[in-house]
């Protein structure tokens, strides 16, 4: 039996289990970073962690405020440039998993991290940074998002990072390499994508969450066929690592 856990812990554990040993992952601050560290401390000791700013395999002792925080660079194995990380390692096809987040994601896994359209006009928020680039070349994409109706939508207000574009083979026709897999981990469930249409598909709901909650909070109609699976729960070992070693200050879990 497992200890009680938080939703963020479950999300971190779910993401960590999708990483394999000897893979190369590009992560950002927060849950992606925690998921990668958890994988490194459990089943994937040879995972290589890359930050776009030019940092490889650091061992941070404190959580920072972003990739531009030297706290995240502590005990790195290599420093390089943006060209060295996303211009070379990524473009050469060496990144297995790219972690992404954003303001909105649509039914084909396209992400908006740039702006929101309102009645008063556009509201510019941020931009791509390296996110669009990771979506271009990572072999697998792991998207982590808060689950809200206005965030999981039919089509994004601005397409910053390409998932499956307009579904089916449209991404390939655009000239982009097809990813092997795209998943979205929210605080309610895990989504994947249909192998033919490339549209959003429910894979599992988190223990304690009702299917109704997922359907009500998703801005895209979902087809549910057969029994819905529950997301696997964290083990005691994983929870202890998260709490005692990876994020002892509990900044993100």
């Amino acid at each position: 039996m497992s200890l009680p856990y938080t939703t963020n812990e479950l999300m971190a554990v779910t993401a960590a289990r999708l990483l394999r040993d000897k893979e190369n992952v590009v992560v950002g601050l927060g849950l992606p970073q925690i998921a990668a560290l958890l994988a490194q401390n459990t089943h994937a000791p040879n995972l290589t962690i890359i930050y776009e700013i030019g940092v490889i395999n650091p061992e941070a002792e404190e959580m920072g405020v972003g990739v531009a925080d030297p706290r995240l660079w502590y005990r790195a194995e290599h420093f390089t440039s943006f060209v060295g990380t996303l211009g070379s390692i990524l473009q050469k096809g060496l990144v297995d998993v790219g972690f992404l987040g954003g303001l909105q994601v649509d039914k084909y896994g396209n992400i908006n991290s740039t702006l929101i359209k309102t009645e008063k006009g556009i509201k510019h928020i941020n931009g791509s940074g390296g996110a669009a680039d990771m979506a271009t070349w990572s072999k697998r994409l792991l998207i982590m998002m808060r689950h809200e109706k206005r965030k999981i939508v039919e089509s994004v207000d601005y397409l910053t990072s390409v998932g499956y574009l307009r579904g089916y083979e449209s991404r390939r026709e655009e000239g982009l390499p097809m990813p092997e897999d795209v998943k979205i981990i929210t605080n309610l469930c895990v989504f994947g994508f249909d192998e033919e249409t490339r549209s959003l598909k429910l894979l599992s709901i988190h223990p304690g969450v009702k299917l109704e909650d997922v359907l009500q909070n998703t801005g895209v109609p979902l087809e549910i066929s057969g029994e819905v699976k529950f997301t696997d729960e964290p083990t005691t070992e994983e929870l202890e690592l998260l709490r005692n070693k990876i994020d002892p200050q509990r900044m993100y879990i």
Binding site: Q91, T114, A132, T136, T160, E174, G175, L176
Partner: peptide
């Protein structure tokens, strides 16, 4: 030349 930006609204 690069694949970056293909399919995005930045490119559009």
């Amino acid at each position: 030349p690069a694949k970056y930006l293909l399919g995005t609204d930045m490119l559009n």
